[in-house]
Design a protein around this nucleic acid. Sequence first.
DNA 1: CTCTATGTTTAATT
DNA 2: GAATTAAACATAGA
Length: 264
Amino acid sequence: MPELPDVEVTRRRLERWLVGATITAARSADRRVLRPGSPRAFGHALVGRAVSAVERRGKWIRVRLDDGGRLFSHLGMTGWWIEAGGAPAGAAERARIDVTRRGSSLSVRYVDPRRFGRLVVAARDLPDWTSLGPDPLADGIDASVLASRLARTRRAAKDAVMDQTVLAGVGNIIATEAFWYARIDPRAPSADLSRAQVGRLARALDAEIRRELGLREGRDDDDWTDPVEIYGRAGSPCPRCRAVVRQAVIGGRTSAFCPRCQGR
DNA sequence: CTCTATGTTTAATT
DNA sequence: GAATTAAACATAGA
């Protein structure tokens, strides 16, 4: 469930469920997801605490507690949060947080089949959080800032854009789509992008993030597969110029691009 | 059976 | 050092 729009929707749900509530139980037996951490430390840090805020930066969520402690949640590839009443645990449930607020109680569950996600309790911010680049929603995507960051490396431009310390929250779908909208070859060395290209890229990234977020707003399901133009469409015609969409592995990630209109 | 996957980290190689 | 590449993680689905 990963890219920024999904994480933002998840943040809003957690905020609705948790802020102002007091944690009555917190359990996880999953040492893979609690990394670093332990079942004992997880419960100890959370039980009895009230939740003061649920924040997001890039793909990370930070739950703030009334004693200054924090719970960090990264959804990895297949993580999501649900409110499950008192239902029994499903097969992929990795953690459970029960809360009470003004006499009513909720049971919030972290579900993650592949367990690439993480839950970390800490008294201070994690390096993973503090090292994140600008957040596209909170900070906006400043083309000048992005240009200066992209100018520092000759890695493929798409790889650089997906670097969470360059810009926080952009994943493979958003990056693939944005390079197509901006008509830029995702394999081009990052430092070779012109100022005009970075400007188009910044606008395309912003538009794609807001488009996907908009599709999820006004909906309250867990369907997060949105219509895309070329992601996963190698071999079919480019929706813009009808050339056959190609595929390449960039920074270890499968990427689709149009060889005709994503030139130079 | 094989191949792929919205993410990140780590080891190996150049 | 930097940069690139492959493998690894764990599971489900086509």
